[in-house]
Write a protein that binds this DNA or RNA. Structure first.
Length: 670
RNA sequence: GGACUCGUGGCGCAGUUGGUUUAGCGCGCCUGCCUGUCACGCAGGAGGUCGCGGGUUCAAGUCCCGUCGGGUCCGCCA
């Protein structure tokens, strides 16, 4: 057996403190940076927990110092030595010891004393954020200028107070100590990394992804990984405490044509047949309820083969939950507790429960979508009634053909230039709005090219309803309700960000409830489920299934936080007769049912308990807690927008033999 | 399926309406010096067929077409 160095460390790099001074320590880590002063070499040694400054001095160990000369960034080191307090640095000046009382008192430093620093050199001008620590009573103080990241050692001697430049680094939790190294083992060398391993780097994402193993060494990324772990752990503990069992469901399952595209896996035994990866464990979790499990959860990977977005990946993770003998309130209560637990344990973020509940229609009316960001105002205001008889044809025509006129008032928008407004018009055009009407409210009154088309009362009423003030601008969109909602809802968000109206420290949770069960598909002239096929209706609106399906209200609920949908769920249908009615309305034939959901509908007839569930999205929860705009930041190894893995280059071609075994012939276009 | 946008040494960028430059700058890297730095400092140095292919032109990093890759969005995502 080879006699290599012992890799057993005594501490992690983020752990040592002043109290450890005098002890020996052994550390493992990566070289973050080397500062060679000829005689003495400093290295910042980094691991998952933080950074420790290690010192190589020929007077401590000549061999170690010589060896340290060859060390470069990201080399892997094993070192041991003595932990020591960082000593005072260069002498700066001596002050009268009448100032000594200021150092021990609680009243801070006098202007007179502070001036001594500035007089010496303006670079030593102290900020107002000063901390004083007693190192030795009546003898030695450490003065930290927090804002300027500078420290000073103050010692009492015969002449008075001698002020020395401090060598403590106030930016590091380990900054009061360093480890004087007597033994250095270079465990591995490293090529110069393509980008430095530190936070706040400006590197293109594809470079980071290609070298993800280096990217993940960065403290911010380590923090995200840890937070994600803690969130999953908190979820497991909480769900278990609440009596839920974690049960795995198959990854290889049946394809269901409803919903998103499936990710397919060919079967070798059955040529021409495919497994599908789960879009969610929906059917299995309901079957578990039928199986008497009563309460189930799973941290489940889900796959949806649809185009990605900043907050969507091909594969993502849900905390999948289902419970028997449960109604809406039971699920919401459990979920509120879960959110409270995750945000507290993983993010240190206090969350107040219960959450506000907002009916779907109200959310659409006020915010233009069903995932409102309620951290700021600028809500949508309906002006259809006011504008019905105006002379502005864009409005009157839209209204005459069953459309709407709605508006938002933008604080301070009077300052918008022609160009600003053109840009915003272009912005709403993305959402099919044909134009963006505007009226500025100046101190002289309304100002816009279209003012002449309105009776003064009409604009006054608009202003009053929107709560617009002089100095604001009112934007209007007239179109079909969906276009108006999309355009103004997104304009509201866009301006909210652009004008810094959003308090980033807030976490505004709210439930969206009272969804319609069906949505009418104009193009295909048929109903579609708003949520999914197995969503139950409310008792009060159940009878509309027979008369007017558009009026049926579902028992579906979404949890929204800061404009992001983080959970979605519903009370399920547990009675075959009602499920059958839903299938009828959706024009799914008995053969279809038998082929696609036969096993499921069979099970429904063997004593299915009432049940309900929900699925919080883990990725988005971590995004919220980490304040990340991009889902790739919270996934260790994400895929690119085109679905490629930048590290492994999946998906890849396979051999002819593999294809033959699967009876697959590839017909690659072009 | 579509729109927009980016691609220039290892990284981040500049490079005007095509021509005065031998394609610049900062960081990093390499060598030497330096015993208190922590974005160490000082001196010197290396490193680029401008994503790829084709075209226009006397002349292309710059214009045109195509293509590949990254990103944002629309459609899509029950």
């Amino acid at each position: 057996m080879s006699q290599g160095p012992s890799l057993k460390r005594t501490h992690y790099c983020g752990e040592l403190r002043l109290a450890d001074a005098g002890n020996t320590a052994q550390l493992n880590g990566w070289v973050r940076r080397r500062r060679d002063h000829g005689g003495v070499i400093f290295i910042d040694l980094r691991d998952r927990t933080g950074i420790t400054q290690i010192v190589f001095d020929p007077q401590i160990d000549e061999n170690a110092h010589t060896l340290a000369d060859s060390v470069r960034s990201e080399y892997v080191l094993n070192v041991s030595g003595t932990v020591r307090e960082r000593e005072p640095g260069d002498y700066l000046f001596t002050a009268n010891n009448t100032f000594q009382s200021e150092l021990s008192g609680n009243n801070g430093l006098s202007a007179e004393f502070k001036t001594l620093f500035t007089d010496l050199d303006t670079k030593y001008t102290l900020s107002n954020n000063i901390e004083i620590n007693v190192r030795e009573t009546d003898k030695h103080w450490l003065l930290t200028d927090v804002d300027n990241n500078r420290t000073y050692d103050i010692l009492v001697d015969a002449d008075g107070l001698s002020i020395y430049q401090g060598t403590v680094n106030p930016e590091l939790p380990t900054g009061e100590i360093e480890v004087a190294i007597d033994t250095l083992n270079i465990l591995n060398t490293a090529k110069t990394p393509p980008f430095p391993v530190e936070d706040e780097i400006e590197v293109a994402e594809d470079i980071r992804m290609k070298y993800r193993f280096i990217d993940l060494r960065r403290p911010e990324m380590q923090k995200t990984l840890e937070m994600r772990h803690k969130a999953a752990l908190a979820a497991r503990n909480y769900m278990s405490e609440q009596g839920f069992l974690e049960i795995e469901t198959p990854i290889l399952m049946n394809s269901t044509p409803e919903g998103a595209r499936d990710v397919l896996v060919p079967s070798r035994y059955y040529p021409g047949k495919f497994y599908a990866l789960p879009q969610s464990p929906q059917q299995f979790k309901q079957i578990l309820m039928m199986s008497g499990v009563d309460r189930y959860f799973q941290i489940a990977r889900c796959f949806r083969d649809e185009d990605t977005r900043a907050d969507r990946q091909l594969e993502f993770t849900q905390i999948d939950i289902e419970m028997s003998f449960a109604e809406v309130n039971d699920v919401l209560e459990v979920t509120e507790g879960l959110m409270k637990k995750i945000f507290k344990d993983a993010g240190g973020i206090p969350v107040e429960t219960p959450f506000l509940r907002l009916p779907y229609h109200e959310s659409m009316a006020r915010f233009g979508n069903d995932k409102p960001d309620t951290r700021f105002g600028m809500e949508l205001t309906d002006l259809s009634d006011v504008m019905a008889d105006c002379d502005f044809q864009v409005f009157s025509r839209a209204l005459a053909s069953g459309g709407q006129v709605k508006g938002i008032a933008v604080p301070g928008g009077e300052a918008f230039s022609r160009k600003d407004i053109d840009d915003l018009t272009e912005f709403v055009a993305t959402y099919r709005a044909k134009g963006l009407a505007w009226v500025k409210i100046t101190s002289e009154g309304f100002s816009s090219g279209i003012v002449k088309f309105f009776k003064p009362e009409q604009l006054e009423t608009a202003q009053e309803r929107m709560g617009a003030q002089p100095g604001d601008i009112m934007f209007f969109v007239a179109d079909k309700p969906k276009v108006v909602a999309d355009a103004l809802g997104n304009l509201r968000l866009h301006l909210g960000h652009k004008l810094n109206l959003i308090d980033e420290s807030l976490y505004n949770f709210l439930w969206i409830v009272d969804y319609p069960l069906f949505e009418w598909n104009e193009e295909e002239n048929r109903f579609e489920p708003h949520h999914h096929l197995f969503t139950g209706a409310t008792q009060e609106t159940l009878h509309f299934l027979d008369t007017d399906p558009s009026k049926v209200q579902s028992q579906h609920y979404d949890l929204v936080c800061n404009g992001s949908e983080i959970c979605s769920g519903s009370v399920r249908i547990h009675q075959w007769e009602i499920q059958q009615k839903i299938f009828n309305i959706l024009n799914i034939t008995p053969e279809d049912i038998k082929n696609r959901f036969g096993y499921f509908t069979d099970a429904l007839e063997y004593g299915t308990p009432p049940h309900a569930g929900i699925a919080p999205g883990l990725d988005r929860i971590v995004m919220l807690m980490r304040n990340e705009e991009n889902i790739r930041e919270v996934i260790a190894f994400p895929k690119s927008q085109q679905g490629l893995c930048p590290l492994t280059h999946a998906p890849s071609t396979v051999t002819e033999e593999q294809l033959d075994e699967l009876s697959i012939r590839v017909d690659a276009a072009e």
